[in-house]
Design a protein around this nucleic acid. Structure first.
Lengths: 169, 169
DNA sequence: TCAAATTAGTAAGTATGCTTACTAATTGCA
DNA sequence: TGCAATTAGTAAGCATACTTACTAATTTGA
């Protein structure tokens, strides 16, 4: 397999990183990390150490109080193992309550605490600001186009995911 | 356009998950996970357990042989701590070689092994296929638009990231 | 009705993707 | 020249995001 580099070679391996830079997988990974950064920059100390994943989990509980973990996971496209740990930490911090369901003793019913509700009210506007900042390089029209296509791609490929979105209701 | 919650509102907290579903942060997180899934589905057993992150690292070494870890990290926008572990595992599997630099004894110089080169040649077409599959819900024109906007957003917000892209050369 | 299949949740293990903190080597500058 | 600042890399710790495997509870169906 090994050979001497020849005169016409672009790179010593015949491959360039430009391919990688244009791959949706690479760009999505980078944008996701930019999104996490922007979240932390915008929320800062107001967030009591909350993460983007924990924020979405709180929003899911706020929108769907009294659901069990599997259905909450589906509502925001989390793996059921993942959401277990996320809820652990949010209970630990006093933002969520976890009780055993009366109807199904396997299931855990999740509710917001007042502290959790207060946290959400406090950071919601900051999170909205972060969403703007991560797309600050796009014009208003480009943002609309981008979001439309991003949502369309995510909906189309939903079942490719290990943790597909399963909206409640 | 924001409005006051009215008597007839659906949710008890005045918030709905529709906001979350439209947030770029949420959609980017979902698409990133879809991308990882599509990679594993497409590469399967041919990849010797390689991950998308490890693949990009191999491509970076192939394109920029003989670089140190910090510069390789910059070439694909990885944190220097992260790439350390990634390279550990790739050396462990026999795809990369790590040697101490003669010029700077702090630095580790990374090279592909022949096995690593063979792996790349084998899986490159499969990875390309995965990139198509994750955008299968978009038309050719939509894909072009989406990729253009995604790249533009990532370039603009590069310095928001904790691990910005720092191309070599 | 009762055993089989399914389901909710957890546990353990692995791989990113950071943070902070540290060592060792190199650079810069007074 | 020599000391301070910087830099490459690692270590430890924490939070996702899975995988596989397990327990316990519920549902199914013969």
């Amino acid at each position: 397999m090994e050979r001497e580099p020849a005169a016409g070679d672009i790179t010593s391996s015949g491959s360039s990183l430009n391919d990688v830079y244009d791959m949706p997988g690479h760009l999505l990974r980078r944008m996701q990390q930019i999104a996490v950064s922007a979240f932390h920059d915008a929320v800062g100390d107001a967030g009591a150490g909350i993460t983007p994943v924990q924020y979405a989990c709180l929003r899911a509980v706020a929108a769907c109080p009294g659901e069990d973990q599997v259905r909450l996971a589906g509502a925001i496209a989390y793996d059921k193992t993942t959401i277990g740990g996320v809820i652990d930490r949010l209970v630990q911090k006093g933002f969520l309550e976890r009780t055993i369901s009366e109807k199904d003793r396997r299931a855990r019913i999740i509710h917001l605490t007042n502290t959790g509700r207060e946290l959400l009210a406090r950071i919601d506007p900051l999170v909205t600001r972060a969403q703007d900042q991560m797309l600050s390089g796009l014009s208003a029209e480009e943002r609309r186009d981008f979001l439309r296509l991003l949502a369309k791609a995510a909906i189309s490929a939903n079942d490719l995911s290990r943790a597909p979105l399963r909206p409640i209701g």
